[in-house]
Design a protein around this nucleic acid. Structure first.
Length: 485
DNA sequence: AAAAAAT
């Protein structure tokens, strides 16, 4: 199957246009604007997959799409059914067709690209399913809005991890191969003198993609100009704007750009925006903007089968992974096993290695060099099983991954509540672009059972239970039903 | 009894 991002399905309901009055409050004395905010909130719940036929139709049947037009304020936009309709440069179209091997815009692309690429360049908050092509949306946005003649940073993309920044730079360079647009990855360097920002000339790359700390550092030492920035992207925006440690940096970058550069378009992309973030974001993005949201009940991917299995202890977790899931693994592609802590990653790695099972591990405690190497080996297909903390929970795109194992369930800090957003991001590592996949949740104890059921409630779905962890047939049935046997 | 970025 070609790596095709295509358009939408027929049975889905039309996106509803709802115009909302300002739900943004005046931010205080220093922000006297209070101008009426007009924001269109567009429900793209129709992005859901056709349940009866159980196939991801919108990837293959672009001509059936019923999304025709959505409007924001007084500006009408028409969805794009082909990339040609978007007035992209021939060089960029060549990148899409030849380098990326795309054929048609996916649903989120069809809806959002006309809004991103055309005046008046409104700010956009866009939610879409995992693996549905959000990266292409903002990458095209950055590439097509950059003035090739101006050798200065004009587009920023802020990402939560160095891995995601590297991945996004790779996509941008591939997609923009024929455009001549230059890019720079702003992530913590290896510490060598040559790469030290103080020893480098000012950045002239037209697109800068990186992590917030490094971008801020480059800005504060005056090596990274924001004067010409006209498009600012936050990948995994809910995370970047809510998490302590990210939030302040993200807002500082945004404010600095808005102070020095006029009319900077802000794009916020993620598969998850909980209500807290939604409310917070409307205070950040002021003025006329567009919001595209998906109902949480429709977010989980039907192409990825989810399972849960009760196990008595840690040893049985390892045995389930090795003797039940991997044992029948001829059709398995690559697998990611998520753990809660760095320490858990290390011990699980030890267990699997002791049992003679090859795997690699990535977590934030490793050196930059090791992290880059582990990810490269996995992306090159040299390793099959990767143990990871939530470092890789978001955005990591490796199409050969069709198995995700939650060795530890994703929980919030106090561990009594599930982290539903992280759950959704984790399972989204399997089933990229509508591919098949399986997720196994290993539940150990009553607390895990409770957390699992809260996750099921949150997304309004039921996760199939594998009745007995010792029973091989249960796992064979599960893997078979997920298409991995 | 946390992961992430970076100082």
């Amino acid at each position: 199957m070609a790596d095709t991002a295509a358009s939408s399905t027929a049975e889905a309901p039309s996106p509803q246009e709802t115009k909302k009055a300002a739900d943004v409050e005046n931010n205080g004395p220093e922000e006297p604007s209070a101008s009426l905010i007009s924001a269109s909130e567009i429900d793209i719940g129709s992005l859901t997959i056709d349940e009866d036929k159980n196939i991801n139709k919108f990837l293959h049947e672009p001509e059936d799409s019923i999304i025709e037009a959505v409007t924001s304020g007084d500006t009408p936009y028409t969805s794009a059914f082909t990339f040609e309709e978007l007035n992209l440069s021939p060089e960029l179209l060549k990148g899409l067709y030849v380098e990326m091997k795309f054929e048609k815009p996916s649903k989120i692309q069809a809806i959002s690209l006309p809004m991103i690429l055309n005046p008046p360049y409104k700010d956009l908050i866009a939610q879409a399913h995992n693996g549905s092509g959000k990266t292409t949306c903002f990458t095209l946005g950055m590439l097509s809005r950059v003035d090739p003649k101006l050798k200065a940073p004009q587009a920023f993309c802020i990402c939560p991890t160095r891995e995601l920044a590297i991945q996004n730079v790779d996509v941008l360079r591939k997609m923009g191969k024929h455009t001549g647009i230059t890019s720079e990855c702003a992530i913590r360097s290896d510490g060598s003198n040559r790469n030290n920002i103080y020893n480098r000339p000012p950045i002239t790359a037209q697109v800068v993609i990186g992590t917030p700390g490094t971008i801020l550092k480059w800005m504060s030492c005056k090596k990274l100009s924001v004067s010409f920035v006209k498009i600012l992207v936050f990948d995994e925006a809910d995370h970047m704007l809510l998490e302590e440690g990210f939030k302040d940096d993200s807002l500082r970058i945004m404010k600095d750009i808005q102070r020095r550069s006029s009319h900077c378009q802000v794009l916020l992309f993620s598969a998850t925006f909980d209500d807290i973030v939604k409310n917070f974001i409307s205070k950040i993005v002021k003025g006329d903007h567009i919001r595209l949201f998906v109902k949480k009940e429709e977010l989980s991917l039907d192409s990825v089968k989810q399972y849960k299995v009760n196990v008595p202890d840690e040893l049985s977790k390892v045995m389930v992974i090795k003797d039940r899931i991997f044992e029948f693994g001829e059709r398995l592609g690559q697998a990611i096993i998520f753990v809660r802590t760095r320490n858990s990653a290390t011990t699980l790695h030890q267990s699997l290695t002791d049992l003679g099972y090859d795997c690699t591990t990535i977590q934030g405690g490793l050196s930059e060099e090791d992290r880059d190497k582990i990810v490269k080996e996995f992306k090159d297909g040299l390793t099959q099983v990767l143990i990871s903390t939530d470092l890789l929970a978001r955005g990591f795109d490796q199409q050969q991954v069709n198995l995700v194992i939650n060795y530890d369930l994703p929980v919030k800090h106090d561990r009594s509540e599930p982290n539903c957003e992280v759950y959704l991001h984790r399972i989204g590592r399997a089933g990229r672009f509508g591919r098949k996949g399986a997720v196994f949740n290993l539940l150990c104890g009553d607390a895990d059972v409770t957390i699992m059921s809260k996750i099921e409630d949150h997304f309004g779905m039921e996760v199939t239970e594998v009745p007995n962890w010792r029973d091989e047939d249960g796992f064979k049935a599960a893997l078979g039903s997920a298409g991995l046997l």
